[in-house]
Every structure is written in structure tokens, then in C-alpha cells.
Nucleic acid binder design. Structure first.
Lengths: 193, 193
DNA sequence: CGCGTGATTGAAACCCTTCAAGTTTAGTGG
DNA sequence: CCACTAAACTTGAAGGGTTTCAATCACGCG
């Protein structure tokens, strides 16, 4: 819970006292690599904060192909907002790419935190808007960039992830085949070295 | 202002009295086809509500190609949330595809409306989440569907727009060339008829 | 050590784009 | 309201980027 506390203190100016109150609404969980937190068709009613480790959300399309939607390393949240807010069955799977330590909470936590802290409310709003910005950026990237540029963009934005995530998952995130990513990297390695 | 009023009454349960207060913070504007409301590099500080007509937001990529980001027909909002909230220069152009009648307001309007109406606050939150949902859907579509399926999906979701928007703009929105869309439509017309 | 997962590489196939030309449609001014 | 022009749409052919399939290689873990 320490990492989460520090995060909320720094990012949302949540005070010691406020946190002591809020932490009653949150739980801790450790999970092993490969374990699932959410499966397609289930209604997602939890939000996960990663204190340690690495999670991912992905969906499986009609052709059975995986599309990775989000990676969540330390200090990131992961959930299916549509599912949680509109009470809809989720289209996503969430599982752990590494042994992870999580904080788990639900919508009530957000509501309560927003009620007792104006700065949290503000921070939460910014999170939402940043989410939109990031989704928009990804759309622009899919619309306007080829495989190579998409990969370069990914490395620039999420360099630390490139070291922790298997290459084929990055390919899946970028919407290209693992083979293509391999070829892109080969081409780039000639230039970089 | 009547359309806007009715919209807020229905969707966000804004009362007559509340609206009379809020409308002081909003302006009306009529613009001709082709007129611009926002250009790349400008900071966007306005939110537009379309009472009548049709707007579009698009960006121009490094290769000079247009990518349409959003269409906004009657009863839709359009803005650049990133620009407005974080005070950043916008990457988008917003212009009118038809002669349009708009309501214009800024962030203060949203803040005031949220302050005086819990239901508006709730509705605004839902709008944000729906926006995320729609962006996510578009990403999934770009990652998983070919030109034909993307077009079918568009027609299903925005049928009325297909009648008002030039074909090459729909192609731009879908991330395919106008020629490809033409061929897709030809292929489909054989099946449908 | 061996198995399995991930990465690489090549060749063929495919979808889509680009370019170019022709046709249709829509808008404008006389 | 017609005539003219520009814009939008269509169609064909060639080319490019990416995928797919298949085989091989590298490596970490039990």
C-alpha cells in the first residue's frame, strides 16, 4: 500500500489522514505471471493500480488474433472504463506479464476520494483527459504512420517497456505482425549501430 | 439557443432556471460552409455545440495528408480537449462542412454547470467516458478490420452521415484511400442489391 | 540436456495505395 | 435555367508495404 499512498500524495495531494480513510476501501493483491484479473464477457468492476510488476489488457478479434490494448507497469492504473461505468460485459482480458503487486479498488473509492479531496477530483479528471489524449495519439499513429515509424514512436514513448515486454506483444500493440516488427528492427539496427 | 436548451434539459436534466443562468456564459454563432473555427497551432479554448449543420475536425500529417478525426452533426459537441485542458496548441483544424448554427462556450461554462447541477456533472462524466469508448472502438477497428469491414461498421454507426459527407472524407476518417472506398462500395453494391 | 517459446529469415500472396485517365455530379455565373 | 467548370467519384494497371506460411535459429527454464 506504500507505493499507492506515495503516488496519491504526490500526484493528487492526498493527505495522510485522507489516505488512512481511503485505504479502508482498497485491497492489496499479489498475483503470479500469467494470472488473470479479468476475462472477456465478465463485467469489470475493479480498478487496478500496479505497485510492482506489469499487467496488460488485450482483446481477441473475430479471427482469433490478440490485440494488446494497454500495458500497465508500476504506478499505472488499468481497468475497463466502459465496463465499469456502464456495467457492460468487457471485451478485454487483463493478465499479468510479471509477478505483480496490486492495489484493488472500485468506483466507490473514486467517488469517496473525489468527495473528500478537490485535488484528487482534479487529478482524476486529468487522468481521464490524458487517457483521451493517448488514445487519440494512437489513432493518429495508426492512420498516418507505417510500421517503422510506429515502432520508433513506441520506443520513444515507452522505452522501459521495450526491455520488459516480448517483441511479439509490442507488435500486437502496434498492429503489425511479429515478423514485420523483426524486420523493422533489423533495418533500424543497421542504421543505429 | 433553443436546441441547446432542449438538449441540456433532456440529457442532463438542466432546469429552466439553471439554463437561464448558464446561457449568459454561452454565445451563438452562424458560420458558412468552409469556414474555420480552429486551425493547427492555435490554442483551442472553446467548445462548440452544433444546433444545426455539420462540422469536422481533422489533422494534417507530415506527408500533407488529411486525417479526419471527428464529424459533429446536430446535437454533438466538438472541441480539442487536450488543447483546452492543458492549454496546448492544437494539432487540429475544425471547419464547417455545411452552413451551421453553433453554441459556443468555454471551460468556465462546464465548471459552472457542474457546480450548479449534479446531473450535469454526471452527464458530462458520461460524455467523457463515451468519448473514450468511441476512441477505443476506433482503435480496435483500425487494428482488426479491413477496409470493407471498417466501412460497414461506419455505415452502421453513422448512417445519416454517409448521406451528408463526401465519400473521400469518410475514406479519410476510416484511414483508407478514396479509391479503395470506391472499390469497396462497388463490391458491396453487388451484394446488397 | 531438451523442450518450448520467442525471434529471425525467405518466398509468395494479398490488400491497399498510387498514378493516371475518364466519367459523373454539383455548384456558379451568365 | 442552362452552360460551364471544378470537384467528386470511378476504373484500370502497376507498385509497395505488410502478412502469411514455413523453416530455422536462439535462448531460458525446468
Amino acid at each position: 500500500m506504500e507505493v499507492f499512498k506515495k503516488y496519491l500524495e504526490e500526484k493528487a495531494q492526498v493527505t495522510n489522514e485522507q489516505f488512512r480513510h481511503l485505504e479502508k476501501l482498497a485491497g492489496e493483491k499479489k498475483i503470479a505471471k500469467g494470472e488473470y484479473l479479468l476475462r472477456q464477457e465478465e463485467v469489470c468492476d475493479k480498478i487496478y493500480f500496479v505497485e510492482k510488476g506489469l499487467l496488460r489488457a488485450y482483446k481477441v478479434d473475430d479471427g482469433g488474433k490478440e490485440h494488446i490494448n494497454q500495458f500497465a507497469p508500476e504506478n499505472w492504473f488499468i481497468t475497463d472504463r466502459s465496463s465499469i461505468l456502464f456495467n457492460l460485459p468487457s471485451e478485454y482480458f487483463i493478465d499479468a506479464l510479471e509477478k505483480s503487486e496490486l492495489i484493488i479498488f472500485d468506483n466507490d473509492f473514486l467517488i469517496e476520494a473525489s468527495n473528500i479531496s478537490a485535488s484528487f477530483r482534479e487529478y482524476n479528471k486529468n487522468l481521464l483527459h490524458n487517457h483521451i489524449r493517448q488514445l487519440q495519439k494512437r489513432i493518429d499513429s495508426l492512420l498516418g504512420l507505417n510500421a517503422e515509424k510506429r515502432y520508433l514512436d513506441f520506443v520513444e514513448t515507452y522505452y522501459n517497456l521495450t526491455l520488459r515486454v516480448p517483441q511479439w506483444m509490442i507488435a500486437s500493440y502496434l498492429g503489425i505482425s511479429p515478423e514485420s516488427l523483426s524486420r523493422v528492427r533489423k533495418k533500424l539496427s543497421v542504421i543505429i549501430k
